[in-house]
Amino acid sequence: MAPLIEVRGLKTYFYTDDGVVRAVDGVDFTIEQEKTLGVVGESGCGKSVTALSIMGLIQTPPGKIEAGEILYHRNGNVTELTNLDPKGKEYRSIRGNEIAMIFQEPMTSLNPVYTIGNQIMEAIILHQKVGKKEARKRAVAMLEAVGIPLPRQRIDEYPHQLSGGMRQRAMIAMALSCNPSLLIADEPTTALDVTIEAQVLTLMHDLRKEFKTAMMLITHDLGVIASMADDVVVMYLGKIVEGSTVRNVFHHTKHPYTQGLMSSIPSLATKRHRLVPIEGVVPDPFEVPAGCGFEPRCPQSMGICKRETPPLKEVVPGHRAACWLYE
C-alpha cells in the first residue's frame, strides 16, 4: 500500500510560564492508505498533540511545531503540511474535508445551539460546493449510514436531544460527510458504555472499509487497538517507543513499557492471575529523565539507559523499538 501521511521527526513543544513541555519530541510514523494506525499511550504521552499537529490545530502560542515534516500524499503530489499556514486557504480546504477528526467527548465538540443537521451541512456546503437542498439530502444519507434511526427527523434535533452514542454517531457522520482520505479518531469510544462502544466500533470498522478511509485511532485501550488497528505505535513521554503490525506488537512485544502495559491489564479471555503493574508514575513533563524516558520505571534498566536516549530503530524487519536491550 502507498503511504498517505508520513510524519518525520515531528517535534511539537509548548512554551509555558513553568517551562517548555516537549509534548511531541521527535516522532516518525507512516499511515498507509486505507489502513488503520493505532496510537497507544497514557495521558500526557503526546498522542493527541500528534493528531492536532497533523490537523494544523496547535494553538500558537503557547504551542509550536519546532521541527519535522508531515508529508501528505494526494493524487500523486506530496504536500508538506507544516509549511502551510494553519489558517490559510489550502489548510482549510484539507482540514475537515480530506483529513477529518472525531473527538472523545461528543457533547463538547458539537455546538449546542445548532441542530446536528446544520452542523453536518455546514461542512458539506463549505467543502463540496453544493446548495442547501443537496447538502441536506447528503446529511440525511450520512445519518442513515451511521445508523441513526429516523434520520429525516433526527437531522433537526439539537445535540442535547441525542444520547451519547447517537452524538458520537452524528460526529462520525459529520467527519465522513466529505469522504476524507484520513479520519483521526481521538479516544472515540472512551466516554461510551460498553454495549454502545461495541456498536460504534463496529460501525467505524464497516464505514472505513466502505469509504476507503485511512484511520489514525488514538486510545489507551489495548482491547480497542487489538480489534481495530492494522499497525500500532506505542508512545511514552512524547516519543514512539515501539511500532509494528498489531500482531507483532501484541505477540512479539519488544519494549519493556509495552510489555508492562500488557501485563497490567486484566483480560476477560485469560484466567485470573496477579497483575504485574508498571512501578512508579509517568515523570513530570518539566523534569524528563536524561536518558531513556522510561528508565526510572523499567525493570530491565541498565547503566546506559540513564545516560543516553535510545534511538527508535528496526530491531527485527518491520518492527521498531527504542530500547538499549536490542543494541
Partner: peptide, 25 residues
C-alpha cells in the same frame, strides 16, 4: 452474554463475534 461479548479483548487474534445490542439503554 451481550455485555461479555462487547468487551474489546486485547488480543488481535481473538475472533469471537460480537453480539451487537440494538439501540440505547
Amino acid at each position: 452474554e451481550a455485555l461479555m461479548s462487547a468487551v474489546p479483548v486485547p488480543d488481535p487474534d481473538y475472533s469471537a463475534e460480537r453480539i451487537i445490542l440494538k439501540g440505547d439503554v
